[in-house]
Design a protein around this nucleic acid. Structure first.
Lengths: 253, 253
DNA sequence: AAGTGGTCTAGACCACCCC
DNA sequence: GGGTGGTCTAGACCACTTA
């Protein structure tokens, strides 16, 4: 451990995941397994360094990453503390439908309305920066909690991104999980949110009256190279769902 | 520059702002002044180190911070690029009312409905973790764009936070700007968003019909020590406003 | 005063991009 | 191959917290 990155170690090479990411994973596991209880203090940095056999700079990069995930919180002269689950979750991300379901102890399922490849319209082609008519994958679903319809999700993906969807189970699976499982990396999500009245079609799917307030969220998700991976419009029945998020401004670090 | 943090430098001491924050400020200035144009490449890291007279680790901390602010984007073998303003803004923050106004070239103003100190209710006291009845400051405003009413903002602050509000101008000023101007540091904002029908009072203020869809956003803003600074509920006329944000997942770094 | 996080440095090797 | 970012180390000093 003297000569910089020349020692990948631990992982059997191949994808030499950075040391700090390995350390982050190790710490995350310990936290999630309950080995270190919420609210309790982590061992001092210098000791963690010895335990994980990494330098302090690298360890701190892992710890900082966990802060952004909402798992840890530093306290200057006192130590690193495990966040109480109650609050401090969902930093800089919208709570996903699946996460909401889990938090409330409900079952998240979907009814697939459409799932097919088809030519893109002008607007869609522009959004994905592809030629109009290029095939895109359409996935329309009614999302439910304990069999109560909550929202209608219309998603659109470039055909290339949707390769491997044949085996996917959209009735229970999360689209995000499926995409990351296929090796896609979601880096950024541009989002707009507004309130609108439900039109007749939407009202029918959600079993509400036409004109009822609906929360409409449009997202374009991009990969680290800024390529659009997914464009989705989700319309939630106004009295059945609430978006939650927590914006952290990282006071610097 | 050989012996670690023993050389605060640059700033006349007192509050020795960290070197990486100074470097971030210097780079930010250069970008905002247009000295380095959007889309263009920054000088190589090793040269920036010489120019700013800091180590590469420190420089990279500054660069990473600017990535989270949406000002820069790294490209592995190619360099650091200034983000095109068009997109890449508003990362991990809701676009504020004032920012929206600026982007659309409209004038953001407010009509103050209430601005006074009063005893807190049970719910409010609980939210702020203070004793019920402890004074809190109430600020209710109708927010307008070019004199069209867009939203009703009901804000609530612990009395201590509101000290110095006497001189503040809420008809044109942003509450966030006023708070930061008073030295408060906003670190985290827990947010929920939902769609609801307008009640009679709200409909009157916004000049819309009762029952019209309204976007309701509730926020609790905290300082770095997790103390609540501000609790606000903003209700936007559904057909006049749209929230925008961009969630960045920093692929690790 | 001792313990713990926060900042900083100099130097090294690796991985990617482009010529 | 040469340039550029990405990762990593060892060691040092400072600032805050607690006793």
């Amino acid at each position: 451990m003297t000569t910089g990155a020349s020692t990948p170690r631990a992982l059997p090479a191949e994808y030499p995941e950075p040391l700090w990411a390995q350390a982050r994973a190790a710490l995350r596991t310990r936290i999630e397994s309950g080995e270190v209880k919420p609210g309790s203090r982590l061992p001092p940095e210098r000791e963690l360094c010895r335990m994980l056999a990494i330098s302090r700079v690298t360890l701190r990069k892992a710890l900082t990453a966990l802060v952004e995930e909402g798992a840890l919180r530093p306290a200057h002269g006192r130590g690193w503390y495990v966040t109480t689950p109650e609050r401090g979750d969902w930093p800089n991300t919208l709570e996903s439908f699946s996460e909401t379901a889990r938090r409330m102890g409900l079952a998240a399922t979907s009814r697939v309305l459409r799932s097919e490849l088809g030519p893109s319209t002008l607007d869609e082609a522009e959004a994905f920066q592809i030629a109009p008519g290029t095939p895109v994958y359409r996935l329309d679903r009614v999302r439910m909690l304990d069999d109560v319809p909550i929202a209608v999700d219309e998603s659109l993906l470039p055909a290339g991104v949707a390769e491997g969807f044949d085996d996917a189970d959209f009735t229970t699976g999360s689209l995000y999980d499926i995409l990351t499982g296929l090796g896609h990396r979601l880096a950024q999500a541009d989002t707009t949110i507004e309130a609108r009245p439900a039109d007749a079609g939407l009202a029918g799917h959600l079993d509400i009256a036409s004109g009822t307030p609906v929360l409409e969220m449009r997202q374009i998700v991009r990969d680290p190279a800024q390529r659009p991976l997914l464009s989705s419009t989700i319309r939630y029945a106004g009295d059945r769902y609430r978006l939650r998020t927590s914006f952290a401004r990282g006071t610097g670090a």
